[in-house]
Write a protein that binds this DNA or RNA. Structure first.
Lengths: 218, 218
DNA sequence: TAGATTGTTAATCGATTAACAATC
DNA sequence: TAGATTGTTAATCGATTAACAATC
């Protein structure tokens, strides 16, 4: 893994999207793609796509474009997808269970190895063949197992407390699905999936779009 | 709802976050907050927060700051949260079920009124007291019921087909949880929750952070 | 009133787009 | 070779930050 600290977050955010689109093309049997074609699919300018990619190297070929399969793999390498990641899910509620099943679809190398919950009724169950363990045993578990990512799907009020337990452990990344704004130690990276924020954005644009349509038709 | 088409998407994206933080403060009993205090919590500059808000009006008071409760309500109004929204969930899998339960937590006025699935085994079930209906009856349902938002939690390959059924109906917004890049008609707004993209970003920053930490300690 | 903090203009910074020489 | 398309520099555009007068 190279040091790309000079690359801005705005660029990084677009990488998984590029990779996903390349995967779609690859499935369709497309072998090569130009930045102009990519720009039509992704909705960015061709210029931007070339700029973005050139932060990481020269992946294309003049007069030809990009090899779809190779570029997909190369972006995957930039993102760090060649590794295997072990994950645990904290909170065996509906969302936790959904993720335990959902991430199984990924062939990209993410493996959920345990689910934790405070509810004694859930402890001992198996979800998608993954054992639900007592949240009280989390610290001990982290001492005896190599885990990379913790997925937080507890209720909002427990999110910070549960994160404090993760501090100083082998956990390097937190995928936070609660609405809480969590403080994390420097050596842990956090990615927030604030679903309510997403729904509120949708709502805003629905209303604005309604206005725009009315205006056009008047 | 006013026309805010002059406000950029970069600004809009921060609004739900501001509102959420104001809600947290309000719960703690905080009555007023300055842009400087907000900046510490949100991680933006005070200047940016004031700039953002002034796109929509003057909500503060010199020498005092912002009234927490009122500003939260005002941002809610900008986002369109005073309305009631009726939602349907397309796909009664783990994620669909999780969302059917999850969104019930929102007091903000979102109501799930039906879930659709192609699997005859699931049709007729009740999830969180919401009926699972046959996907085949979707068109008819949309003709006879007022629905604002469709949540798509089908598999990736069905996402476009299901969207085509929504075109021309009463649906004004799509909340897409599949990895598909969906084409939508002009009068429908789409908000994508690409969970795999989010996980890939986390992975990238985990690896970059690892590098940074190693460098510091060497 | 004096102190604090907003609303807003101007300055800076960064990101996007345009353009084109290099080259496959 | 001629045509196409990249890699990359330069120009433009937009977003963020700084600064401060207005004012509570």
């Amino acid at each position: 893994m190279k040091d790309y600290s000079f690359v801005s977050n705005t660029v990084i955010k677009r990488l998984p999207r590029y990779r996903r689109i390349l995967g779609d093309l690859s499935e369709k049997g497309v072998k090569s793609v130009s930045s102009t074609e990519l720009s039509r699919i992704a909705g960015y300018t061709a210029s931007q796509i070339r700029q973005d990619l050139n932060n990481f190297g020269a992946f294309g070929q003049q007069g030809y474009g990009y090899n779809v399969e190779r570029l997909q793999r190369q972006i995957g390498e930039i993102l760090g997808l060649r590794n295997e990641y072990k994950m645990i899910v904290l909170g065996a509620g509906n969302l936790g269970q959904a993720i335990a099943n959902y991430t199984h679809y990924y062939k990209s190398g993410y493996q959920i190895i345990a689910i934790f919950d405070v509810n004694p009724r859930l402890v001992g169950l198996r979800i998608n063949d993954i054992e639900v363990l007592d949240a009280g045993s989390l610290t001990e578990y982290l001492e005896n197992n190599q885990v990379d990512i913790a997925v937080i799907t507890t209720d909002k009020d427990s999110a910070q407390a549960v994160t404090d337990v993760l501090a100083g452990s082998c956990i390097r990344g937190i995928w936070n699905f609660t609405a809480a704004e969590i403080d994390v130690p420097e050596d842990i990276v956090i990615e927030n999936v604030h679903l309510s924020d997403s729904l509120h954005m949708l709502t805003y644009y629905m209303n604005q779009n309604g206005l725009r349509i009315k205006e056009l038709s008047s």
